[in-house]
Amino acid sequence: MAKNVFLLILLSFFLLPFSSLALTQDFCVANLLLSQTPAGYQCKPAARVTANDFYLTGAIRPTTIQPFNISFVPAYGSYLPGINGLQLAGVRIFLGVNGVVPLHSIPRANEIMFVVRGTLNVGFITSTSNVVYTKTLSQGDIFLFPQGLLRFFYNAGDTTAEVFGVFNNQNPGLQITDYALFGNILPAEVVSKVTYLSVADVKGLKRFFGPRTFGA
């Protein structure tokens, strides 16, 4: 009984944000020929919509982030045009042995993570008192990350781990703390001042991470 109630709440969590859209039209497939707006893409003409607009092949080549030994396949935006307007997004992440998704935040969405295979340690930090909630996850486990909070997860096993994350926003955003601190154009002296790291350490980290942008 409790499991059924949880599944009902989980389903409602993702369906309610776009229920108003369903009252006026079935979907709004992204017209990728036009520029994206703050509310998403404009709708593709119905005559040009195909089943491929709602499909993402499992054979797609993941994007790799070398320093962290991870790769990912996003399920939103131009990758999955049919998701446009539904306030929903997803990502499939592969973590090699010792792979880590470092401290980061998802500013515009809550996230539910499902472990497809492997063992992971996950956690997030509250914004009010810096309380840390951590858990070790195995295949089939689910974990919830509240919106905007700093979180992390890493491969705690000796084989590749795979997870799937679902967000209640079609453009959830991503800010990785390491790149926010050391992948910017702020002078090393300024970063040193606000982080209490030595200038030499900051310069070394800037060389390692360098200017790079993830998410939107």
Rank of each mutant, 00 (worst) to 15 (best):
P17S: 13
T37M: 11
G77N: 06
A46E: 15
N121F: 00
N168R: 04
G77K: 01
P211E: 04
F13A: 12
V100L: 08
V73M: 10
L137M: 11
I65Y: 09
G118R: 01
T57A: 09
T159V: 07
M1E: 13
I142C: 13
F14L: 13
G77F: 03
T126H: 11
P81E: 09
V202D: 03
E111R: 07
R108G: 08
K44C: 12
P45Q: 12
L7R: 12
G183M: 01
F94G: 01
P81D: 06
Y196P: 01
P45H: 10
A156W: 09
I60K: 15
F167Y: 15
G82A: 10
Q87I: 05
M1Y: 07
A39Q: 15
G40M: 09
Y154C: 02
Y154S: 04
Q42Y: 12
P107D: 06
T213H: 13
P67K: 07
I176C: 02
L88V: 13
L16S: 02
V101M: 05
N130A: 11
L80Y: 13
Y55V: 00
P45G: 12
L86H: 09
V199M: 00
T177I: 14
P172K: 04
F208I: 00
T213Y: 12
M1L: 11
F114S: 10
I185C: 03
K44T: 03
L16D: 03
F54N: 05
V100G: 02
S12C: 14
T126A: 10
G183K: 00
P211V: 06
M1I: 12
V191F: 03
F164N: 03
N171C: 04
A39C: 11
L21P: 00
P17R: 06
P187R: 10
A216D: 14
Y76C: 08
V166R: 07
L34N: 12
R207C: 01
N184C: 07
D26E: 13
G165N: 04
P74T: 10
P17K: 06
N171M: 09
F14C: 03
L186F: 12
H104K: 05
K44V: 01
R92P: 04
R117S: 15
D53E: 08
S105Q: 14
M1W: 08
G58K: 04
F68A: 05
Y179P: 02
A89C: 09
G40C: 09
I142M: 15
I125E: 04
L56F: 11
V91G: 01
S35W: 04
Q87H: 14
V190D: 12
L15V: 09
L144Y: 15
Q175N: 13
T160R: 00
V73K: 06
S127M: 07
V166P: 01
L181E: 06
L150F: 11
P38L: 06
R117H: 08
Q170L: 03
R207W: 00
G118V: 08
